[in-house]
């Protein structure tokens, strides 16, 4: 959510600054012939330059137009971009390791996460979360944190583990680290609004602990946006 707002902010900056921003790249006379650079490409496409002008000026979606030369100038970098072609599906598990893994943790984006319940978590992580809960209940916060870090090593990209770790750190009195760990959790919980809201609430708590009322209010606001 923070990222989204960041994006809004950036888009706003870009839009407002569009007319005045000059490219930092040296301006090249578009009429001059462009020499293709050395052939570094393994494919056959390189060096190809679109020369025909078939289009109107491209639509700019609030994009930093200024950094692009117009597509009808025929001006292009000396070597084309290589890599995956468009017919490759956008989110294929590409690693042979991943694809042969029968039960690696589900990619976060694939989860249909609606609440912060622990139901979709892999059994080893679930087991450690419950161990940590027991330790916390018994007042063994150090043990709980250590068990949660064990879980984090098994599933480093599972934000619910980071959520719990942030909670325990907060209980231990380390509000600073609690917020940072929650932020890390946020950066991994895209598409999981309930969890994002929970993390923002937790961040609000850490800020309250540190006497940052304004920051806390801001975090609460974010939590509401997430939900």
């Amino acid at each position: 959510m923070k990222n989204k707002s960041l994006a809004f902010l950036m888009a706003a900056t870009v839009l407002s600054g569009c007319g005045t921003l000059r490219p930092s790249i040296p301006v090249v006379d578009a009429g001059a012939p462009v020499t293709p650079g050395a052939m570094r490409d393994r494919d056959a496409r390189q060096g190809a330059v679109v020369t025909e002008s078939r289009n109107e000026a491209p639509v700019a979606y609030g994009a930093p137009e200024s950094q692009y030369v117009k597509p009808d100038t025929g001006y292009a970098p000396s070597a084309p971009i290589q890599g995956e072609e468009f017919d490759a599906p956008l989110h294929t598990p590409e690693s042979i390791y991943e694809s042969t893994a029968p039960s690696t943790p589900t990619p976060i984006a694939a989860e249909q996460q609606t609440s912060a319940v622990v139901a979709q978590i892999e059994p080893p992580v679930l087991a450690l979360l419950s161990t940590a809960q027991q330790q916390q209940n018994q007042g063994d916060l150090n043990g709980a944190a250590a068990s949660l870090e064990r879980a984090q090593r098994i599933a480093p990209r599972e934000p619910q583990v980071l959520y719990r770790l942030a909670e325990v750190r907060l209980a231990q009195g380390d509000a600073q680290q609690a917020e940072q760990i929650a932020q890390r959790g946020l950066s991994l919980s895209s598409g999981r609004p309930a969890l994002q809201a929970g993390l923002w609430d937790l961040i609000a708590e850490t800020r309250e602990k540190r006497g940052d009322a304004a920051g806390a209010a801001q975090a609460r606001q974010r939590a509401r946006i997430s939900l």
Binding site: P58, Y68, P71, A76, E85, F86
Partner: peptide, 30 residues
């Protein structure tokens, strides 16, 4: 892949590139 403009539809040779939201390239005629 030649000039780096967005394409409005797929065709052979196009590549996928990540951008920060709001900084996507304008559409081209590739």
């Amino acid at each position: 892949p030649v000039q780096g403009f967005a394409v409005s539809q797929g065709c052979a040779g196009v590549v996928k590139m990540p951008y920060l939201k709001g900084s996507e390239p304008p559409l081209g005629n590739f």
